[in-house]
């Protein structure tokens, strides 16, 4: 089992008031699954993603990643997990605005300690994989939204992580561009990556094999998508 979460709760204290962002989420995700997380605004999807990505730690419950208990990890170990195991894609891209796309893509490799030359090679390969071979030296402000998200995906891929976490990756894109981005995730999944993404759009979720609905910080439903069922029945599905 790649991901095993048991009774995860996350509380935020704001003064006297306690916000229960997650209240006892249990789920397990296997290697090479393609999972979409859906749910109304404020239901706790981003909170869950942050915990999955080891950016945040739960208030209660246990989280095992690759058989290792995340709550036992030190800060530096968490950083290492984020660096090697996880590739983040954010809704608002989160690129360094003053650096060109190549440098943005290289970032995770810097913290992995890869040599400058090797870094360059890997980053270029990663950018080519997302179809951005021509835009190496453009700054984020010189790119379209779709292109920015491609840079962010190239960056998420460059360390060859086992899990891609994407929090509303198409949220800031028009539907056509969003569809192009989804094609990239499709390819990643087909190459053996585990992909977990948050979306509000049912047609985006349909790309996945499994949809988890979150409501009020709890898992409301967790089932295979129609496409996955059709694929399981041997039908050829083109989205």
């Amino acid at each position: 089992m790649l991901i095993q979460m048991t009774n995860i709760a996350k509380n935020y204290e704001i003064g006297e008031e306690v916000v229960h962002a997650l209240r006892g989420v249990s789920l397990s995700i296997e290697k090479n699954e393609y999972v979409a997380i859906m749910g109304p605004s404020g239901s706790g999807k981003s909170t869950l993603m942050n915990i999955l990505g080891c950016l945040d730690s739960p208030s209660e419950g246990t989280y095992d990643l690759n058989g290792k208990a995340v709550s036992d990890m030190t800060d530096d170990e968490l950083a290492e997990v984020r660096n090697k195991e996880i590739g983040f894609v954010f809704q608002n891209f989160n690129l360094l605005s003053r650096s060109d796309s190549l440098h943005n893509t290289e970032l995770p490799l810097i913290y992995l300690g890869v040599s400058r030359k090797k870094r360059r090679e890997l980053a270029i390969a990663s950018m080519q994989a997302v179809g951005l071979g021509e835009r190496m030296h453009h700054k984020p402000s010189e790119l379209s939204g779709g292109q920015r998200q491609r840079v962010a995906i190239a960056r998420a891929l460059v360390n060859n992580p086992s899990i891609i976490l994407a929090d509303e990756p198409t949220g800031n894109l028009d539907s056509k561009t969003g569809e192009e981005i989804m094609q990239i995730f499709e390819v990643l999944h087909s190459k053996g990556n585990t992909v977990i993404l948050v979306t509000h759009e049912p047609y985006i979720a349909e790309h996945a094999n499994r949809v988890i609905h979150i409501l009020d910080g709890q898992v409301d439903s967790d089932k295979a998508t129609e496409n996955a069922i059709r694929r399981a029945n041997g039908e050829k599905v083109v989205i």
Partner: peptide
């Protein structure tokens, strides 16, 4: 601050 957050998300340690 956001840049620091991004760097941390990508694997930067505190000492980095």
């Amino acid at each position: 601050t956001r840049e620091i957050g991004v760097r941390k998300a990508l694997g930067a340690t505190r000492s980095n």
